[in-house]
């Protein structure tokens, strides 16, 4: 639903975008990933016209974005950046209300929307009167997400939004975002340099390098299409392990068994990566999980089978 065709942009001697074409599907979260300087942020910013390309065209729902004035376009797109950029002189609720007020929503509608968004992102309603400097890093970023979603845009552009947060909070906020995206089904273009984050959040991943897209596929299939040195180097030899995070025990085909007392239990919502780690260290001990009151045996082989299917299927 967002179509970018033949995007080109150079800064002097540096080619940021090299005749790049991409299509983002409705309701998907497409992650742009790559080493520093590959052009992912630049590509993101061409969509809300913070960067004007030298050549190329972008359409949203078949309408060229140049049909709109830049400010009008941006008010229909949510934008989250690493530094968050909350206005320090406004309260949390005034920050969130910026775009709705620009769009001249009625106050009651705005207030209701603020409450809705805070609850969605897991922040207490009492935070409405707080000031940005009173928030922790993770809280500030959540408010940033609320602000981006305030006018209920179809499209969300996110530029390394969780980069400035400490690793523990980052994982929390990533999971929260994944939940949010599952519920809202926005069309999201997400830029990150963190492969784990891409695997966790992306429906599809576009691996970029020097202004070009080297590969565009689901996280499971990444690295499978055409063997590419740069791609393999980037994703690393242990990539298979990383994508195990995407699936849980509930995605496996398991054999039902009778539970025994010496068995080691795992939550059915555990990721396959966790499960594998547990299996590797449990040795001869049986590992089971319970789904709908039925116990199932979990085996390394099951995980292997799943991985093969998902990767080469």
């Amino acid at each position: 639903m967002i179509k970018l065709s033949h995007m080109t942009k150079t800064y002097g001697a540096i080619t940021a975008l090299d005749d790049l074409s991409l299509e983002v599907r409705n309701g998907e979260c497409l992650v742009l990933i790559g080493p520093s300087g590959c052009g992912k942020s630049t590509l993101l910013k061409t969509i809300n016209r913070l960067v004007e390309p030298d050549a190329g065209e972008i359409t949203i729902h078949q309408k060229p974005i140049h049909d709109y004035a830049p400010e009008v376009l941006r008010r229909q797109i949510g934008y989250c950046i690493q530094g968050v950029g909350l206005f320090p002189h406004l309260s949390v609720s005034d920050n969130i209300a910026v775009v709705p007020r620009l769009l001249k929503w009625d106050e009651p509608k705005i207030q209701a929307r603020i409450d809705e968004l805070l609850t969605l992102t897991g922040l207490p309603l009492s935070y409405k009167t707080k000031r940005p400097h009173q928030l922790s890093g993770g809280e500030a970023q959540r408010v940033g997400v609320c602000r981006a979603l305030a006018a209920d845009p179809e499209v969300l552009l996110m530029d390394e939004p969780f980069g400035a947060v400490d690793p523990m909070t980052r994982e929390q906020i990533q999971l929260a975002f994944r939940e949010l995206q599952r519920r809202l089904k926005k069309t999201v273009l997400f830029v990150t340099h963190d492969l784990e984050e891409a695997i966790l959040l992306g429906d599809r991943i576009a691996l970029m390098h020097r202004g070009k897209i080297l590969e565009l596929s689901t996280p499971e299939s990444l690295g499978q299409s055409t063997p590419n040195e740069t791609v393999n180097q980037f994703i690393g030899a242990d990539y298979a392990l990383r994508i195990l995070r995407r699936s849980t025990l509930e995605d496996l085909k398991l054999t039902a068994v009778q539970p025994q007392t010496e068995d080691r239990r795992l939550e059915s919502t555990s990721s396959l990566k966790e499960a594998l780690a547990v299996l590797l260290e449990s040795g001869n001990q049986r590992v089971i999980t319970v789904i709908d009151h039925q116990a199932y045996r979990v085996d390394v082989g099951d995980i292997m089978a799943h991985l093969q299917a998902v990767r080469y299927g």
Partner: peptide, 18 residues
């Protein structure tokens, strides 16, 4: 002025004057 604040303001769709 914090550049992040200015960038997010622009990205949200505020005009220069706003």
């Amino acid at each position: 002025l914090d550049p992040a604040v200015l960038e997010s303001a622009k990205g949200m769709g505020l005009t220069s004057r706003q």
